[in-house]
Design a protein around this nucleic acid. Structure first.
Ligand SMILES: [Zn+2]
Ligand SMILES: [Zn+2]
Ligand SMILES: [Zn+2]
Ligand SMILES: [Zn+2]
Lengths: 132, 132
DNA sequence: TTATAAATGTTATATTATTACATAACGTTA
DNA sequence: TAACGTTATGTAATAATATAACATTTATAA
């Protein structure tokens, strides 16, 4: 069990929005959606996003510049993330596969690097898009 | 052996620059460096980068918005890439590990996704930075 | 309470990437 | 060669993503 982080006002507004959306959201789309709640500037959004990423409540999908709610239990605070991305419909989901995560978390090579974190993005076609 | 792509003028200028740099380069830094060669606009750079990525001569480091010359043999035309990134000095190198690439290329789960491509980024500290 | 850290508000600006449109070079085949 | 389609180039404008700098407020905790 990890520490509970109590979210601040802006963090909560933004996390709830992303979480309810069920998929990845882009920063300026988030901004647009929370303006009625008083969050008016990009920086307010980015600060909340930074914090939410830091504590593992959301992840950034790097190839899409988008943010998605963690679908596991905050992923060891975001040190090990894997996503599946449909290149047709842009559906994204978080992969939760213990074999994969064990394999990657224990990966090492002879480069002398000490790895502490990874992010993996798989691309392809989802079930729906395949059958079209 | 894969098809040889003969690079166009702009593509060659930009590939040579990235390749010689030995590390990741950002688009606008590339632009700055090739202005004396007549490449004046961002779009000229991005078009060349797009093509070079497509044919596997370079890869995009998504978490850094930067581009690096392929250190293998054009990585099955960029369908399977893995990088090691030092979070201290930002040194990046391409991981060439056949076990890892086999494992990931054959990865599948019960989601119904058909995976055709992946990108993996490991983060940590390189040898030098560790010992500081 | 008082000090410290964390979060917020606001303006301006930097960085990364694309749209739209016009032109030129290249490769193929009639 | 001529005509055609494809790829690459040039140029201007703009869109999309992200951060710097500074002032103020709120939460936490010694
Ligand atoms: Zn997660
Ligand atoms: Zn799909
Ligand atoms: Zn490569
Ligand atoms: Zn380093």
């Amino acid at each position: 069990m990890q520490k509970e982080h109590s979210l601040s006002k802006n963090q909560k507004i933004i996390f709830d929005l992303i979480d309810k959306s069920g998929g990845p959201m882009k920063a300026y789309s988030i901004l647009f959606n929370v303006q009625k709640k008083g969050i008016k500037a990009p920086l307010q959004v980015y600060r909340a996003l930074d914090k939410l990423v830091e504590i593992g409540k959301i992840h950034k999908i790097e190839s899409r510049n988008a943010f998605i709610a963690c679908q596991n239990s905050s992923c060891q605070v975001s040190k090990a993330t894997a996503f599946s991305i449909c290149e047709s419909c842009e559906n994204v989901s978080e992969i939760s596969n213990s074999k994969l995560s064990k394999y990657l978390s224990s990966f090492s090579d002879n480069s002398g690097m000490k790895y502490s974190k990874y992010n993996l993005e798989f691309f392809g076609l989802c079930k729906k898009c395949k059958s079209k």
